[in-house]
Design a protein around this nucleic acid. Sequence first.
DNA 1: CGTACACCCTGGCCGC
DNA 2: TGCGGCCAGGGTGTAC
Length: 292
Amino acid sequence: MPELPEVETVCRGLARVLEGRRLTRVEARRPDLRFPLPKDFAARLRGRTIERIRRRAKYMLFELDDGQVLIGHLGMSGRMRIMPGDREGELEPPGAHDHVIFATDDGTTVYFNDARRFGYFDLAPCTELEAHKYFANLGPEPLGNDFNGPALAAALKGKKTPIKAALLDQRVVAGIGNIYACEALHRAGISPRRLARSVQGARAERLASAVRAVLTDAIAAGGSSLRDHVQPDGELGYFQHAWRVYGREGAPCGGSDAVIAASGQSGAACGEPVRRLVQAGRSTFYCGVCQR
DNA sequence: CGTACACCCTGGCCGC
DNA sequence: TGCGGCCAGGGTGTAC
């Protein structure tokens, strides 16, 4: 499920039940995830208290009471299944894709479930986090103060890749994935094929604003739920209903924010069928009229 | 160096 | 019902 808004939603759900809790049992049922779990993974976590849970890019960060940080990535299909601790009776037995079990002192238990096993966990000292291999080359947080039009323009300067590919490059800006790259470009009225280096000045300003807006809206909606993926508490995110182009090939374009603003007419639906193309092996959805 | 692409893995869906 | 082909939210290693 996981681009930035989904990971943010997951972290908030986990924080509610795990912050302040002590890990009483950690079980690595299947260590061969995207990367192997670090040595002595379970032993290094057992007895630790989770002080704070936060997010960086698409990573979950669990700050522990011994100065370590548990780093988690959900890959394509990873989920954190929360089993409330106040439930009478026994825990639901782990299934085939429940690879890691985190059990806490109040009975709350979380299963890391990931059919495709592109997700992974690692441990690192808190003080060395920014230098860690996963974080050293990450671009700015799109909802943070370091991300704006000029910063985006600078990051795109000279880049010959299509802007769509550049938005997926975590060194340019961190946390955007395939859905939100498509949605942000549509809101900004920018063609996914446009060369990244040509997104400068007002265009970069528009794109930075569109990125912030779509991510903010998606977080407010609890993220997007695909197929059976749900938030940790079982709630469904509903941002998938607000997609304007992603997954809507052939459906009528409702108009780009940028194009509508420029025309001065409110509610001017475009009506052009949404198109799909493949860039760098991944589907891009866009409107050929609104996006230039 | 920057860019392009195959690949890791499983499951769901569609067409035959 | 069965099966092959294609598709899926990500990121990395390798080949140009």
